[in-house]
């Protein structure tokens, strides 16, 4: 590997070095520098250091600017006797709170988010291929799968929330089925089917050639976009009584943005 070093580097090392040893590394894994021409990389100092400093300063400027414009919310002193209406969790849990409206709390609050975390942890072991590392969406097919899964989830999950809100099976079938059917079986089955439909489509369409990566892209995209959509609905479209309203048309002077 040493003969691959460019001339500048050689001279520099010889000039200032009284050392009797040299830096040699045994490489088994495909590391950054292996089998690469010298043009492929640059010294981290100073370019990377400067860009990082710029990013940090830019972030600070943004945060200070935003903090000058908008104050952090502070309501009345906490009072356990007076419930706020609506009572909302922090914004990043609004997707879960929205789910709570549609099914038994065990599934909305424990089973589904738990399954999501387990899925995230398993991703690198479900997809063992090395194809497309470092390339956005892996391939053109991957890009298409991401695009259509996003559009699909952006339509289907808000539709699920709205339809279930206006025609809740736990009310409609209250006297027909036991509560575990109406509160758990029906909504969870619908949600799981909706989540796996794109995966099934990719698998079917690929005629056995769809890679694990492609199937996982479909599932991951659906989960992320569904989480995003439900968070938006819970945060912006739920008002007093946790009923659905247009964000600009909330009753009683309630503004979703006050919950940040």
């Amino acid at each position: 590997m040493t003969e691959e070093k460019d001339k500048d580097e050689k001279e520099a090392f010889e000039k200032s070095s009284g050392k009797t040893y040299s830096l040699v590394e045994m490489v088994k894994a495909p590391l950054t520098m292996v089998d690469k021409g010298p043009d492929d990389s640059i010294f981290s100092f100073p370019i990377v250091a400067i860009w990082e400093a710029i990013l940090f300063l830019g972030m600070m400027v943004f945060l200070i600017g935003f903090s000058l414009i908008k104050d952090a919310p502070l309501e009345e002193l906490a009072n356990p006797l007076i419930t706020t209406d609506p009572a909302k969790a922090p914004w990043y849990f609004m997707g879960l709170q929205e789910l709570l409206e549609h099914m038994h709390p065990f599934f909305a609050g424990v089973a589904l988010p738990g399954a999501l975390v387990v899925f995230l942890l398993l991703i690198p072991y479900l997809d063992q291929s090395k194809a497309g590392i470092g390339r956005w969406f892996t391939s053109e097919r991957g890009k298409l799968i991401t695009k259509w899964s996003s559009i699909y989830a952006m339509i289907v999950f808000p539709a699920f929330a709205v339809i279930d809100y206006f025609f809740p099976p736990r009310e409609i079938f209250r006297d027909v089925f036991p509560s575990w059917v109406t509160q758990s079986l029906i909504p969870v089955t619908i949600l799981v089917v909706l989540a796996f439909l794109p995966v099934f489509y990719v698998w079917k369409k690929g005629e056995g050639k769809a890679t694990a990566r492609e199937l996982i892209i479909a599932l991951f995209t659906v989960m992320i976009v569904a989480g995003f959509a439900l968070t938006i609905i819970g945060f912006f479209f739920r008002g007093p009584g946790f009923e659905m309203f247009w964000p600009w048309d909330m009753p009683a002077g309630y503004s979703p943005l006050d919950n940040l």
């Binding site: 909302k88 969790a89 922090p90």
Partner: peptide
């Protein structure tokens, strides 16, 4: 980290957000 910090101002917003948030954990069997 964000969730635990949310309670600290001890206003109505934080109190009820944490009440709602932690009640979700209570549903685990």
């Amino acid at each position: 980290a964000s969730f635990t910090g949310y309670l600290l101002p001890w206003d109505q917003l934080s109190f009820w957000a944490i009440t709602v948030g932690t009640s979700i954990a209570g549903y685990a069997p």
